Computed example of a mutant assay.
Amino acid sequence: MANGWAPDGAVQDQIDDTVKDAVLRARGMMPSGDGSDECDDCGEDIPAARRAALPGTRRCVACQAKRDATLRSVGINRRGSKDSQLR
């Protein structure tokens, strides 16, 4: 059931688009290219298991965790609530 002037299935379309955007963003953040034996940030050795699991990785687990913590998830509020428009 649609809400207001929205067509039937609009809510599911919003959900599908949000998931699609999240997948594309995650794929864009995946390491690519040549990997490294040493971490670019701290210089420690990157374990062989990590290099095998993530080809192209250039950071150790600890440095990657720090980097991921600083990156904020930027989402799109597809509902367009008044609160989101005021920010």
Rank of each mutant, 00 (worst) to 15 (best):
L71F: 03
P7S: 13
R78T: 02
G9E: 04
T70C: 00
A69V: 00
S84Q: 09
I76Y: 04
D45S: 14
E38T: 15
R58A: 02
E44R: 09
G35H: 06
G35V: 07
V61A: 11
D13N: 07
R79A: 08
S73T: 07
K20M: 02
N77F: 07
E38G: 10
G28Q: 05
R79Y: 13
R87D: 01
G80E: 06
R59S: 11
M30C: 06
A6K: 10
I76S: 08
L86G: 03
G43E: 05
S32W: 01
V74I: 08
N77Q: 13
G28N: 06
D34M: 00
D34N: 07
G28C: 05
W5C: 03
A52K: 14
D68Q: 07
E44D: 15
L24N: 14
A65C: 05
I15V: 15
W5Y: 13
A53Q: 05
G75F: 10
L24S: 11
A6N: 12
Q12T: 11
G33Q: 04
C42Q: 09
R59H: 07
R50T: 11
C63S: 07
A49Y: 10
P47V: 08
D45G: 03
R79V: 04
R25V: 15
K82M: 07
G35L: 05
A49F: 12
Q14Y: 04
P55N: 07
A6R: 14
V61F: 14
G43R: 07
L54I: 15
A48K: 12
M30R: 13
I76E: 13
L86V: 00
R72G: 01
V11C: 12
K66E: 08
S81R: 01
K66S: 08
R72V: 15
D34A: 11
S73A: 14
G33E: 07
L86W: 03
D13M: 09
A69W: 00
I76K: 08
M1S: 13
D37M: 09
I15L: 10
R58W: 01
A62N: 04
K20E: 09
S73E: 05
Q64G: 03
C42P: 15
G9W: 05
E44C: 15
